[in-house]
Design a protein around this nucleic acid. Structure first.
Lengths: 191, 191
DNA sequence: CGCGACGTTGATTTGCCTCAACGATTGTGG
DNA sequence: CCACAATCGTTGAGGCAAATCAACGTCGCG
């Protein structure tokens, strides 16, 4: 298994000794999933954080009416889990599944706690990851509150060009909080 | 100045030696603000993170049309800043001002960096703070995507009863992403 | 006391949804 | 490798949630 992309990703924020990165890698397990395979089912207790080495995942919330509301896409180099369930221990609200065949590195919550103790630098690493995640979610809230659907769509195209290549339009509609039909109307206007 | 509420808040997540908490407190400066006073103006470079010791702040985004979209309320024991600007160094998108006379403890970005170096435990502390902030924002996105305005309002009443006591309805409407007029319609129905 | 912010009401408009239908792909089992 | 089914993207008619605009009484504050 080639962990170079993960190690490069980590190296952007903290510097590790060889022994530290070895220890870190020893805590991970590799999971290969096929398209549509479910990594986390709504209602389960989420004890795993996933790093996408290759492929594409998504996380969605299913509401009372059964609609899927897409909360995030996760391409290569992204961390994804139900952080609410992961931190609180409560049943997860989200389902995480694979948009295409993917290679995932998994870290158990108990192992993450050990990692924090053995290599406190990872507190810094995940502090930065969480901080960025917080900022991203807040920017999304700002967009949702202040912009109409058409602008949110254009902004999405600019912000996540890679996602656009991997994901059908109806899922982008769901992420934007609109129906596929209405996205279609928007797209026609822009042409 | 009585820092006990801040120290109790910190102690929920990390244990500090006396020398460590003394150092931490030495980095803070106290700012007393009056109702309507601005702590951070949109467009400024945000280099301060604020802890609300007493009172109430809010952060809002002003869109092209000039509408205020309230991003967060911050009561006692909350941290508030424009985290986007704080971390990226870019001009802030948010304005932060006081909803009532308040006592704020301020920490400069450079001092926070020093704090991380001198007392690495604070990496853990802010990792947890950021993680919680991330989860909160994600839950808000889920609500905004999946629930109609009336349910979001009811849910807000349950989740932030203290805010309701401090804040006029039109600001709650803005937080919920609806107009004051429509909130009024919702409230009439519930009676 | 007077003025501006607030909360409310009603009439009208609009952004987006629902439902139904349709070709065009995609993918899958035989 | 084909045939059929499922998913996708799109179009249109009709409907609803929420916005806009205007008006009004109330209240806290200067």
């Amino acid at each position: 298994m080639d962990y170079s992309s993960l190690l490069q990703h980590v190296a952007k924020h903290i510097q590790l000794e060889k022994s530290e990165s070895d220890y870190f890698l020893s805590l991970l397990s590799v999971k290969e999933v096929r398209r549509k395979e479910v990594l986390l089912q709504e209602g389960q207790h989420c004890t795993i954080i996933n790093y996408v080495q290759q492929g594409a995942l998504r996380a969605y919330y299913r509401d009372k009416e059964g609609n899927q509301n897409i909360i995030m896409f996760a391409l290569s180099d992204w961390w994804v889990t139900d952080m609410y369930s992961f931190t609180s221990g409560k049943p997860s609200m989200l389902t995480v599944d694979a948009l295409e065949d993917s290679v995932i590195l998994q870290l158990q919550k108990v192992d993450l706690e050990k990692l924090y103790q053995q290599v406190p630098k990872f507190e810094r690493f995940f502090r930065i990851i969480m901080q960025n995640a917080y900022v991203r979610e807040q920017l999304r809230i700002i967009e949702n509150l202040s912009k109409p659907a058409e602008e949110r769509y254009k902004s999405f195209l600019v912000k996540y060009p890679l996602v656009v290549q991997h994901v059908p339009l109806k899922q982008i509609a769901s992420y934007l909080g609109i129906t596929p039909e209405f996205l279609s109307v928007i797209r026609k206007k822009s042409k």
